[in-house]
Amino acid sequence: MHTPYHFFLAGLMLVTGSINTITTKCGESASKNACAGRTNGEHLFDHPFVQALAMFIGEFCCLIAYHIYVAIARPAPLKAENGKSTTYNPIIFLLPALCDCTATSTMYVGLTLTYASQFQMLRGSVIIFTGLLSKFWLGRKLEGFRWMGMVLVLIGLLCVGLAAFFSGSSGASAPNPILGDILIIAAQVIVALQMVIEEKFLSKYTVPPLMAVGWEGFFGMGIITTLCLIFWEVPGTRAGGKFENINDAFLQLGNSHAIQLAIAGTIVSIAFFNFSGISVTQEMSATTRMVLDSVRTLTIWVYGMAVGWEDFQYMQVIGFFFLIMGTFVYNDLLILPALRRWGLLKPKPEEGKPLLVNDS
């Protein structure tokens, strides 16, 4: 029986998850003169690394929230279960944070080139790479329905890619959707690698989810800040001829309330999205979280068409359908359990369980 708290968590996850992608795209679409007297002139807020920094600040807020919760609620100490240790060095989250920084920055560069809905849909390709890595690196057995889910996701990706091809590159909100989509898919390889690394570490230690997210945010902030300072000296195509012009980013941020709101929206939404996503899984089920995440993609898609970011593409509809079906089949949610209840499939095998595909 679902309680009002359950509906609150579901709504919070849906709203904050949608806001996260929308505010990021809004920030990139905003423009403001960098500063009076500067030669850069008015230009778009093209600073994906600074926006990645905002995301990691949001993740770090989860660590602060966890310690506040412990100080107030004083929960029982964690217990070592299944041979896992409750004592660990936070440095274990440095390598996953490196992967997260690489993947997030690449995805945000891709988002500057393509549509917000394509960005959200193509993130589903992580299932394919996670499945392959769990098979060939961790030596996990992939059951037939896992392969089926990966094939369905692949079909969906092809359809979404065709939608980008037919859309051309004339839209102001998506100057090069094909290249943007390629970058987003490439980033999912790094995301899959991050999941495999986290799986290996977390199989040894008992770590509260919010604390794990928070530590990755902490290391991610340090890495991205360092990269921004390095990229200041690297020639590129952004303002001032830099690969990343952090000075220009903060000047634009100080001169535009729209950009300020977008960055604040990214920080707050990613923090609450992580909290609500973990809570939905714990309080309800992974199935509920998967359904809400699918609705989030649909919400972003509808919003993008409503504000004129993109036009309706029937290939996107087909691709979205296959991506969702593939995700459900791979994660053994809804469809296969129903077939088992009806006696049309054998009971679910217990061994060889692959990595769970999470979204952050």
Rank of each mutant, 00 (worst) to 15 (best):
P209S: 07
S279N: 10
A10K: 12
P347G: 01
Q252K: 11
P235F: 14
V153R: 06
Q194G: 15
Y303G: 12
T24A: 13
L154A: 12
W301E: 08
G308C: 08
P177V: 09
I182H: 06
F136H: 04
A54I: 06
F166S: 00
Q188W: 09
M107Y: 14
C62M: 12
G308V: 08
E143L: 15
G265Y: 02
E198P: 08
V70K: 03
R340G: 03
T281C: 10
M107E: 15
C99G: 07
P209Y: 06
H67G: 00
F320R: 09
T39D: 12
P48S: 02
I230N: 00
T297W: 12
G27F: 03
L251A: 08
I246D: 07
P337G: 03
A54D: 06
A164N: 08
E42S: 09
Q313N: 14
G131Y: 01
Q282K: 11
N255C: 13
G110T: 01
A192P: 04
F272N: 03
I19V: 15
V189A: 13
L113C: 02
M1N: 11
T288Q: 10
M55A: 11
R340N: 07
A30T: 09
L133G: 10
Q252G: 13
M195H: 13
M284W: 00
N89E: 06
C99M: 05
V280T: 11
C62L: 11
I68A: 03
A73F: 14
G236P: 03
T281G: 11
Y66H: 04
G352K: 04
T206A: 00
M150N: 03
A286T: 06
L44M: 05
E199Y: 12
Q313S: 15
P235R: 15
S134E: 04
W342G: 12
I190V: 14
T287F: 00
A76H: 10
V196P: 03
R340V: 04
G222W: 03
A73R: 13
L14W: 15
A30H: 09
K242M: 11
A54V: 03
F328Q: 01
G352M: 04
V160Y: 02
W301T: 08
N82I: 11
H47Q: 06
L333D: 01
S294L: 15
L157E: 01
K348D: 06
T288I: 12
M107G: 14
H2C: 11
A249V: 07
E244D: 03
F60V: 13
I318S: 09
T86A: 02
F8N: 01
N40K: 14
T130F: 08
A164D: 12
P90Y: 06
T23P: 09
I263L: 10
I185R: 01
A174C: 05
S170P: 12
L142S: 05
T87N: 15
S117L: 07
E350K: 11
F56L: 01
G144P: 15
L355Y: 00
S18N: 03
A65K: 10
H67K: 10
L122Y: 03
P347R: 00
S276V: 04
A10W: 10
R140T: 13
D46A: 09
L193G: 13
